[in-house]
């Protein structure tokens, strides 16, 4: 199993919708709206590093209202 954290910078004030959309993605086990330079942090629990890339780069990145993401894989 691979655990990773995805930091999401939004470009929308609709944080609720964004949080729900990200939390609904398969592999996302937890997501929170946070204060600071990013707006949402999502925790992923998946089988492989490839899954991390797929979820972060494709699904989260392409969610409406997401400006940018930054991914950290847990060691």
């Amino acid at each position: 199993m691979v655990t990773a954290y995805v930091l999401v910078k939004a470009n929308t004030g609709e944080a609720d919708r964004l949080l729900d959309a990200i939390a609904a993605i398969d592999g996302v086990v937890d997501a929170h709206i946070v204060a600071g330079d990013v707006d949402v942090i999502a925790k992923l629990d998946v089988d492989s590093p490839t899954d991390v890339k797929d979820i972060a780069a494709d699904e989260i990145q392409h969610t409406d209202g997401v400006e940018d993401t930054e991914t950290y894989i847990s060691m």
């Binding site: 939004a10 470009n11 929308t12 004030g13 609709e14 944080a15 609720d16 709206i33 204060a35 707006d39």
Partner: peptide
């Protein structure tokens, strides 16, 4: 400016 809504609602 988009953060105004977020902080108003959650903070």
């Amino acid at each position: 400016d988009y953060r105004e809504n977020i902080y108003r609602k959650y903070a």
